[in-house]
Structures are given as C-alpha cells and as structure tokens.
C-alpha cells in the first residue's frame, strides 16, 4: 500500500521561500494564496532567542478534519493518502478552512492578478473552477499521477515529485511513500528525531518535522500566546 508523506528537516530550512514561490508557479495560485509557505517563528526573550523557519502546508492527515466537516464530499482522501478537493462539487462554505488546524486552506471569491489585469501567463493559467471554492496543497497530485503512470517514483524523479520538494535549496524537504521502508522519506523519518505538529489532535498528519535532539537542554522560555 502506498501512503505519501513529507519530511521537513527544520535543521536545514532557512526560510528562503523558494518552495513557496515554486508552489505558486507549479500551481498557478493567485496573489496572496500560498498553498505552502514557510513560517518565521521566534521564541524566547532577548538575548535568549530562537528563530525557527517552519514550512507548512496541507498535512494530508490520516483523519482529516477538513474532510469530516465538508458538507459536500468535495474533500476526499485517496487510498494513497492524498487529500483532494473536487472543485466542481465544493460550494465554498469554507467550513474546511476553519477546520484545518494547519491553516492550509484558502478560499478566494474573485479572480485576482498580480498587477490587477491578468498578464499573459496568468491569463493562460487562469482556472475559473478555483474561484469561490476551497483550495490547498495537493502534494502536486497531477505530477504524481502523471509521473507514476510513466513508471517514475515520487520523491525520486522530479517529474513525479511535488514542486516544493524539487525546488528546496537546502534539501530540507523529502517526499515519498512512507509505507515503503526503503523510500527516502521513510529513511529520513526513521533516521532522525521527529515530531508531527498538533499530534494531540489525533488526526495523523503526514508531514514529519525532523529536528536534532541535541538542543533539548537549551532552555528557551516559551512565548506567551
């Protein structure tokens, strides 16, 4: 059984937003819509401060809260774990947006372009089906499907791998089949200390954050919420 997952090495990520930009290219998202982005977080008080860059996107949860709440079944989970949205079914109620603990979903209500009127590339790629519905990271599902149809391996062959992973300049992102112990992502997770965000919600996110356990003894005072 294939189950796609991503590993994010926080030790490597530098917050450059190359993945954010690559995603915007690959998925032609309109201005302000970022299916993935890198958060710039700061913890502690001067001079004991830690600053961490955290890539975040749809976590393709095992038990996705967005799917449960969706009143239309537009949001579905494929057998390979990818959570999808059927733009032709979605009514744009945004219930999923307020259900996703990772702030991974967006709804745009009207066409938007970088400089007001569409440029050639925007006009070429504009898709009215995405207006008024929820959108989010798909793990570049079309690339995965096209690639696997050609016998390519997601996470290994660029043409079958999410654009963000292809683009990462710090090799912070690894993708692949977490059910295959030989996949890069399985090895990355198995070989490193890791956590999943909001594990306490018991929704089984499929993005694994790798960190180096040696910092555990460094006290950084938690930031007030």
């Amino acid at each position: 059984m294939t189950r796609y997952a991503m590993a994010v090495d926080l030790n490597r990520c530098v917050g450059c937003q190359t993945c954010t930009a690559a995603c915007k290219h690959a998925n032609a998202t309109p201005p302000g819509v970022q299916w993935r982005r890198v958060l710039d977080l700061e913890f502690g008080t001067y001079p004991d401060v830690a600053r961490v860059f955290v890539p975040t996107a749809c976590q393709h949860c095992d038990d996705p809260p967005c799917m449960d709440v969706c009143p239309t079944q537009a949001t579905k989970k494929r057998p390979d774990g990818i959570v999808t949205i059927d733009y032709d079914v979605c009514i744009g109620c945004a219930y999923c947006v307020v259900a996703c603990p990772y702030d991974a979903r967006t709804k745009v209500t009207k066409p938007a372009f970088a400089y007001g009127t569409p440029m050639q590339n925007e006009a070429k790629r504009f898709d009215d089906a995405r207006i008024g519905v929820a959108t989010k990271c798909t793990f570049c599902v079309e690339r995965i499907d096209d690639g696997t149809a050609k016998g390519l391996t997601p996470g290994v062959d660029p043409d079958a791998t999410p654009a963000c992973v292809n683009s990462c300049i710090a090799k912070a992102l690894t993708f692949g089949d977490i059910d295959d112990p030989q996949s890069d992502v399985s090895k990355a997770v198995a070989g490193n200390a890791h956590f999943r965000m909001h594990e306490e919600l018991r929704i089984g996110p499929r993005v694994y954050y790798l960190y180096d356990a040696t910092r555990e003894d460094t006290p950084i005072v938690e930031e007030a919420m």
Binding site: C16, A21, Y115, M119
Partner: peptide, 21 residues
C-alpha cells in the same frame, strides 16, 4: 554545488517578462 537548485529570485522572472509596467 547547490544540487542544481534555483534561488527564489529566479521565480520572479516570469512576472518580470510580462510585467505590465
């Protein structure tokens, strides 16, 4: 030496090409 990757700035080039101004 950077594994053939491309910096974020390069992703601005499509907009540069078609920039309305």
């Amino acid at each position: 030496p950077g594994n053939g990757k491309v910096c974020v700035k390069a992703y601005g080039l499509v907009q540069k090409t078609y920039h309305p101004n």
